[in-house]
């Protein structure tokens, strides 16, 4: 293959790796929004906590990649439930703006509270994967890239299965469709909402660990920008729609690596937000969403 094609493929691989991280975070956003109509601004910071728990599991507890991943996912699932119970549950019937501001408060708390605990210092993620590279037709596949993609795909498949085919998944869909009707059908909506936060936060934790592995460094403010980007991804796919978040995440990752590949990496974030605004103006319900109108 000639070098331009090779480069294009290389960018595609990078884009998919980054995109799968966005997709994992976006899933949490979209699930929580689907069920309680709240933009959980703290979601990116839960991812940061996940990255730190993974770091802790690997360097302090000396766990290998998979157990560390599990450790981090479980801790963040608990954190997610805790956040929901303490901060969001009392506001379930409050105005949207009050809920949004609370989410911003939780986000600031995790960022700067986290900074008090782990200091603002940037930490290096330990290498968990061998430095092996596979070369197929001139395109490099890092061992880490492959594990990341596989991890992301497996988690998304698990989530899809849970939501579509299990009892709790059906309950989740019922609650997101109509909370009161679900309650009347004997579904414990509180538990379902907690479960949704748990799953979303666990996925964010996984994304955090992968992010640490991918970029090698972590810091307490690392969740802000990927959090916003993941939100863009969720809106792009149609907020509240699970496959939409996956596709939106991957697309955003690809667009970013294309922009970087064109040598405009300082404009990368601006392009992401521009896409967000364009999607909102042209088709606010996202690629997979349906338009709804207010009944007069």
């Amino acid at each position: 293959m000639d070098s331009i094609t090779t480069q294009v493929f290389q960018q595609l691989i990078n884009g998919l790796s980054l995109g799968s991280i966005y997709a994992l975070i976006a899933l949490g956003y979209t699930m929580v929004y689907g069920i309680v109509k709240l933009i959980n601004f703290a979601h990116g910071d839960v991812m940061m906590v996940g990255a730190y728990s993974g770091w802790f599991a690997i360097t302090v507890l000396h766990l290998s990649f998979l157990p560390a991943l599990l450790f981090s996912m479980i801790s963040c699932a608990l954190l997610g439930v805790l956040i929901e119970r303490i901060a969001y549950k009392p506001l379930r019937n409050a105005s949207r703006i009050a809920a949004l501001i609370t989410a911003i408060g939780v986000s600031l708390f995790l960022e700067y509270g986290g900074m008090l605990v782990v200091t603002a210092q940037v930490r290096t993620y330990p290498p968990v994967f061998p430095d092996t590279k596979f070369i197929v037709g001139g395109v490099y596949f890092k061992y880490g890239d492959i594990v990341m993609l596989i991890t992301a795909v497996v988690l998304m498949a698990l989530l899809h299965f849970t939501v579509q085919y299990t009892k709790v998944g059906k309950a989740m869909r019922a609650v997101s469709f109509d909370k009161e009707a679900a309650l009347l059908m004997g579904i414990n909506t509180n538990n379902i909402i907690s479960f949704t936060f748990a799953i979303g936060s666990a996925l964010a934790a996984a994304a955090g660990v992968l992010m640490g592995v991918y970029f090698n460094t972590i810091d307490p403010l690392m969740g802000i920008i990927p959090g916003l980007k993941a939100f863009v991804a969720a809106v792009l796919g149609g907020i509240g729609i699970i496959p939409g978040a996956m596709v939106g995440g991957l697309m955003l990752g690809l667009v970013e690596s294309i922009v970087s590949g064109l040598g405009a990496s300082t404009w990368r974030d601006a392009v992401a937000f521009l896409i967000l605004i364009l999607v909102l103006i042209i088709k606010p319900s996202g690629l997979f969403g349906k338009n709804v109108r207010e009944k007069v």
Partner: peptide, 20 residues
């Protein structure tokens, strides 16, 4: 400064819960 935003954050959440 290291406590400033933490306190602000807690204040915000408490405010929203008790006097939105």
């Amino acid at each position: 400064p290291e406590w400033r935003l933490v306190i602000t954050a807690v204040f915000l959440v408490v405010m929203m819960i008790f006097r939105p």
